[in-house]
Structure formats: structure tokens, C-alpha cells
Design a protein around this nucleic acid. Sequence first.
DNA 1: ATCCGATGTGTAACCGGTTACACACAATGA
DNA 2: TCATTGTGTGTAACCGGTTACACATCGGAT
Lengths: 335, 335
Amino acid sequence: MATIRDVAKLAGVSVATVSRVINKNGYVNKETEQAVQQAIKMLNYEPNKVARGLASKKTETIALIMPDISNPFFSELARAVEDAARLYGYTVLICNSDNDSGKEQTYINVLKKRYVDGILFATHSLKAADISAMNEAGIPLVILDRAPSKASCYVVRSKNYEGATMAVRHLLQIGCKKIAHIYGPQETATGKERLLGYEDSVRHFEWFTPSLMVPGHFRINGGMEAVEQLLARHPDVDGIFAGNDLMALGALKKLQQMGLSVPDQVALCGFDGIELTVITEPELTTISQPIYDMGALSTRLLIQKIEGVAVDNQIYEFDVELIARGSTRKDMKTP
Amino acid sequence: MATIRDVAKLAGVSVATVSRVINKNGYVNKETEQAVQQAIKMLNYEPNKVARGLASKKTETIALIMPDISNPFFSELARAVEDAARLYGYTVLICNSDNDSGKEQTYINVLKKRYVDGILFATHSLKAADISAMNEAGIPLVILDRAPSKASCYVVRSKNYEGATMAVRHLLQIGCKKIAHIYGPQETATGKERLLGYEDSVRHFEWFTPSLMVPGHFRINGGMEAVEQLLARHPDVDGIFAGNDLMALGALKKLQQMGLSVPDQVALCGFDGIELTVITEPELTTISQPIYDMGALSTRLLIQKIEGVAVDNQIYEFDVELIARGSTRKDMKTP
DNA sequence: ATCCGATGTGTAACCGGTTACACACAATGA
DNA sequence: TCATTGTGTGTAACCGGTTACACATCGGAT
């Protein structure tokens, strides 16, 4: 592969001039530029990213740290991130943290040694202290789906609380008389906010009791177990709002196994809007966040921060949307 | 961050000696080594990967090129790859090709400029010529799930043909009288081999006719459409073997929508063994490949090749396994 | 006529490692 | 005793870019 010195020699100029042409900075004479361009074409020259990285400390690489890429939510997110990054010439490193803050620290350390330009966090094990540390180290950061913390950094999230209230309202509208909630980990902002939205929407009903809230750990199995517990305690539950789609999928499956008809006997609503919600029969009603857009925006923000482009807001909050489908479509089934 | 020169100064030796200590090559006196180690600890020194990459042309980075990370098969694979890579101190770049060979070429180009150490291909748009080109460029390669080609490189795959025959045999065993196949893209080795396995297993039956084979493009929607076509042509089909799990999921959904009971009226078997096969009701019978193991082995092979460790075989073929579940469990449902 | 800023280009240091090569010294064998 | 080999270490070039700085030229303002 040709180097910048080869180009300089062929064009009869110095490497500095070639570099100026490539990076379009500094003064270069039109004709000189032509000559350099010609030489570049001739030699099929393309700048070496590693050398450039060493010299400039910019590698055009970002890292995505998340709990687990094999979780559909994160794989959809990762796709969006990679697409957006590619548009700007960046490449994406993936890091699975399993929500283990030790692993996360190890990653951060490695990423620093690699001069990664910025990090996109989609995990909750990051502490405020870590954020300040990264800020001091000068590593741009965007955090996904986290409550805003003291430490300053960009946050991209969606309206979890509102979404939860929308879910409950929808279930009430279709006639549910007793609505339960399967909630996610309370260490996560998403888990907490959705639970709160549910609670605030139902606490004034006389049928409400705290035992209608069951943990499901954001996982399929968790959703299944939650339904078992729930129906043992409250056989008369006729609506379930699950804190994410995976738990809703688990819940749906368990309900079907128990011989309960969805939505006729129990209506079901999830949260997230992952693609898998359409593979079941009935399809899953969900409060959909624009996962792809969130990933893409996060990435653009991160890159803008890396490249020193001023961005006005610190927090970007996306609207969520109710997608009513078969799992709550009582009207269709009971004419 | 401390540099190697800082360490050298503090330890009172030259950078070469420090480098020797770090890389454990060349002669170093025991006491000198102690001193250097002490200095390293003192300064909290860790070698800069970018500088090392430039000097040695090894970046301890591998790339995973696949069609789409948001496809569950590939996200499970990616997880395995990242886990295995991390064990060896490597990081993973992700590249979504959408099976577009133009995109793929662009990636390869970028990866070269980044001194990526090796590439794991899980896509079929790679041509034999490309493989030779990469070989000449000295970039180690492992290919997943591809038929062995002339060009020499490591291939990790599973027994697609055998798996297909297992699927058909299973469907026959549970009493199916007319078995159809939804096949994947014939540009892929997996699609082709599974189709062939089906054909060879059924061609001698008098009920067999080519119109029992319908394309499904390895996608959920494809599976749904295929079922529609199939049942229009052959209302008496009572068994379907889908070339991958996504198509099987689509098929299951369409069958349920059409009011057909699975497995009683139509039994269904997929291929791949992705985790999602358990979220439906009934759960999906599938020919399971060890996706995680395949990803992990591919990665280990790639890294061994990168590090010059001799590996005997060129082709690694995994056994597949029939996982019989609800979608073919007629015995349970019809006592 | 003089000064100044804008334009254009080259030299060489630098980023932070690796490594070829030179050199010094001790032990070993002929 | 001397050549040879094995240890141990430092110097400096090198990987392939970026960029501070020096220097030259030129047009326009004073």
C-alpha cells in the first residue's frame, strides 16, 4: 500500500502539502492540489487509519457498550448505531457488559488504550462518578435511556412514564377491570419509570393492591414466572402491562399454556416495540419507542460531540406510541 | 497517560528494554526486569494499542461481517464471537453487509486501512476471487457456513444436508403424509444444502411434486407468504420443513391465522435453533446448530491463524441435533 | 517605498510503540 | 590463549501519518 511519502514524491511536493490536500486544511495552490490528487489516484493511495490515529488521537471509532447484543432490543439498536456511524465514516466496536460494572470498567480501560473517540452507553451500571471521570478524560459520551444525572453528558431516552400511563389507559379503555404490571429491574431508569407510571395510573382504583406488581427482570422467563405468580394471587386479572416486550412475550406464552385466551380473558400490552412483537399470534400490543431512531440519533450526537460541533440540548426525549394489536383487540373478538 | 519512555526513564533503562519486558521477548536480566515492572506499576503504565498497531501492524481487532446484526441468528453469533475474542484480548468490529457485495468490498477496504488482524465472514456474497485476494493481502479469514471453495481458508459449518434429512424423517415418523419445504436463498450454501437434503429425502414418494418447494428468503414474511402459496396449491399438506427458524416462525403464525392447528393439522419444523423458537405456543421443533459454539470456534480459529498457531483442519463441521417440541408433538395432542 | 497580511510550501519533530543492529561482557571449548 | 556463543542493553530507525514553525512570495494599504 502506498504511503503519503510515495504520493509526495510522485507529485513532487512535501508530505505536508499532501496532508493538507487530503484534509483540506491550510493553503494549497490549485495546481499543486491537482497534481497531488493525480498522484493519489495514480497510486491508489488511501491514508492509513492507524497512523492517523496515532498522530491525531482520533480513530473514527466508537464503542457501543450494552448488556447483551443477543437481546433483540440491543441488536436492533446496534444496527441503527452501525448504520449511522458508517454514514460518518466511523466504525463500531461492540462490548457486552452483562450489566457487570467490572466488565464495563475493563472495557472502558481497553477503549482508552485504543483511542476510541467516544462511547455510547446503553447500560445502567455506569455510575455518576464514572461519567465525570470520562468527562475529565475527554471522552465523549452518550447515554441511552438513563435518567439525567448530575454529571453532564448527552442523554437519549423516551417517555417511559407517559408510555406506562398510555398502556394502562388503553387497557382500561378496552374494558379491563383489574390490571397488573410486570416490572423490570428497579436499578434501571426504564424499569423504575414504567412502574411509577403504572402505579400512578391505577393507585386510585379500589381494586388496586401492591401485589399486582410482579418482577420479571426484563426477560422472557421472568415474564412467564410473573404470570404464574400473578394468576395464583389474582385469578381475576384481566389485563397485564409488561414493562418490556420480552416479558410480554413470556407472559403471552404462559397465558396460552395455561389455556387462557388472549385478549379475551386477559389482555396484554408490552413496551419497546421490538420487531418480534409481530411474530406471535395474536400479535402483541406494545408501547413502541423508536429504537432505530434512538440509536441513530445517539450516534449522530456522539459524533457531533466528538467533532466539536455544538449541540444545544443535553437531553433528547422521544415520544412513544401505542401500537394496538391483537393482544388487546377485544372489540374484534367479542362482537 | 504514561508512555514507554516515561517508564524507561523511571527504571533507568532504555525503551527497548522496557519493550522486551512487556513483550517477554529477547534477553532481560532478572533484576532489570524487576525494576521495569516496578516502574510500570508506579506509573500505572499500559501500552498504547494504536502505537503498537502502527509499529507492529497488529491491532488485536477482528471484524465480523454479516448480513444484519438485528437478525437473531447473527446477534447470537456476534455474542459468541465477542465473548471468545475478549478472552484473547481482541475487540470486535461489526459490519452489516445486507448481503450487498458492494458494501462488503467497502468494508474490506476500510478494515485493511485499519489494520484489522482478521475477518470473520458470515455472508455469502464473498466470491472465491475475494478470498484469494485476502489471502494474498495476508489477511486471515474464517468463513461461516459456506461450502468449501477452491481458495484455501478456514470454514466452519454444520451438517445442513443431514439436518434436512433428519427433519424430514422426523416429520414422517410422527405420521405426516405430505411434507413441504420452504427454502432459503439458493445463493447460500445453507439454503441450497437444506433444500437438497429435503429433495433427496422425499423424491421417491409418490406424493412428491416440485411445487411442494416454495421460497421464503430466510425471512419471517417469506415464511408467511410461502405458507399461503403452499396451502393454496396443496391444501392437504400436513408437514412443513422450513429452511430456517425465522421462516418457520412466519409459517407458524400464518398457519395459526388461517385457523389451522399446529401440530395437529400441520406439523412444523425449523432449522438453526435460535432462542426465539421457544417463545411461541406451541414451541418450535427445530434442527439446532450450536450457534454459540460455532461463533466461538470460528473466532478461536481466526485468532490462531492470526497468531501463527498451526491448525490442522481447514474445515470444521458441526453436528446438528433435532429438538422435538410442540410444533411436531402430535402424540401428545392426539391421544 | 514600506509594511502587512494572506497565500503557499517545505523541514522536521512528534504521536508511542517495535526492532535491527551494534556493542559489551562472560563463559565455554579448542 | 583466542575464537565463539550466549546474555544483556542501548541507539536509532521505522511504522505512516499530523502539524508547528520557518520561510518565500505577492498584492494592497499607507
